[in-house]
């Protein structure tokens, strides 16, 4: 059994995001791609300062990926003088977000990016299943599961902060169930919204996240 400590959702217009980064860090994050900025804002919102040194893994998925940056890169490579600006190329590499996040989250030990193949389906069940396996094995003290996306005029980040041990203010416990229940919440991009609603207004004792393909176990959230 593992524990859910925070559900964080952040939506920004393109103009708002740099301001949110400045507010979180007290300074701008220079030469950072949109996904990196989203990663920094969300991770710091999900983990209080006293927990940022603990061994942490980040598992994040993205539908958009670095879309705008990739379009810029393609334009430079295909229509320009063949070699792009180095920072435009760097911005297309999602792995770089973790390296730029680590100075603000010193306990970050590993980060994995999962680009999504479908506009609506998500891999929350896989991320939570891996989190359960790794936290239960003692590999990390806490794991952040996230979905980060951006378009030309907007950006969004959805975050679940999980730990191996319960905290005083843990929101729910999680456990994997062997079968994928038919009445579970589907594994889609808006799962965090379902979870937030369940935590805020639904009186039912548990919430089940159903794996999209039915092979990864379902995840049962129960109120603590």
């Amino acid at each position: 059994m593992i524990y859910l400590n925070a559900v964080v959702t952040r939506n920004f217009t393109a103009a708002e995001l740099p301001g949110a980064v400045r507010a979180a860090l007290g300074k701008p994050l220079r030469r950072a791609a949109t996904l990196t900025q989203l990663a920094v804002v969300g991770a710091l919102a999900g983990l209080p300062p006293e927990r940022r040194h603990l061994p942490t893994a980040l598992l994040w998925q993205t539908t958009s990926g670095p879309r705008n940056e990739t379009l810029n890169l393609l334009a430079e490579v295909c229509n320009g003088p063949a070699e792009p600006m180095p920072y435009d190329f760097l911005a297309t590499q999602p792995a770089i977000a973790a390296a730029q996040l680590k100075p603000f989250l010193p306990g970050l030990q590993s980060a994995t990016c999962l680009p999504l193949a479908d506009e609506t389906a998500a891999h929350w069940s896989l991320l939570l299943c891996l989190a359960d396996n790794w936290l239960s094995a003692g590999r990390y003290a806490q794991i952040l599961c996230a979905q980060l996306d951006h378009a030309s005029d907007s950006a969004s980040g959805h975050w679940l902060a999980l730990s191996a041990a319960p905290l005083e203010n843990s929101l729910a416990s999680l456990q994997l169930t062997g079968t994928s229940p038919e009445n579970g919440v589907p594994d889609t991009c808006d799962f965090p919204a379902h979870l937030s609603r369940w935590l805020a207004v639904d009186n039912s004792a548990s919430l089940l996240l159903q794996s999209a393909a039915g092979q990864v176990p379902a995840v049962e959230f129960a109120r603590t």
Binding site: Q93, L114, A117, L126, S211, Q215
Partner: peptide, 8 residues
Amino acid sequence: PCYSFSNA
């Protein structure tokens, strides 16, 4: 199920 990973 099909999962993708992009960590350089």
